[in-house]
């Protein structure tokens, strides 16, 4: 199972590619409104890139429950357990 630190490291890489910036430091409380350009399309990019990275598939309820980076990390943790 991936540790939380590993998940954050992986997500940092994904976010860096999606938003084309390297200065984004992910924290559990970070949400879409904190990051410029994080709209519904970027949200889908993040989700799909994460699915590709971990070879997992989020279901509809899981996606609906994602409000912050912390939520995403938690769901990844459960699904890769």
């Amino acid at each position: 199972m991936a540790t939380e630190a590993e998940i954050y490291a992986a997500l940092n890489e994904i976010f860096a590619d999606v938003f084309m910036r390297d200065d984004l430091k992910l924290t559990p409380a970070l949400t879409a409104k904190d990051v410029q350009g994080w709209d519904s399309f970027k949200q889908i990019e993040i989700i799909m890139a994460t699915e590709e990275r971990y070879s997992i598939k989020f279901n509809t309820r899981e996606l609906d429950s994602l409000l912050s980076v912390g939520d995403l990390v938690k769901v990844i943790g459960t699904k890769t357990a």
């Binding site: 994904i14 999606v18 084309m20 990019e45 799909m48 590709e52």
Partner: peptide, 12 residues
């Protein structure tokens, strides 16, 4: 390129 990098390249 995957889709994320494709978008990044296009934007750049």
């Amino acid at each position: 390129l995957n889709f994320v990098l494709t978008n990044a390249l296009d934007e750049t």
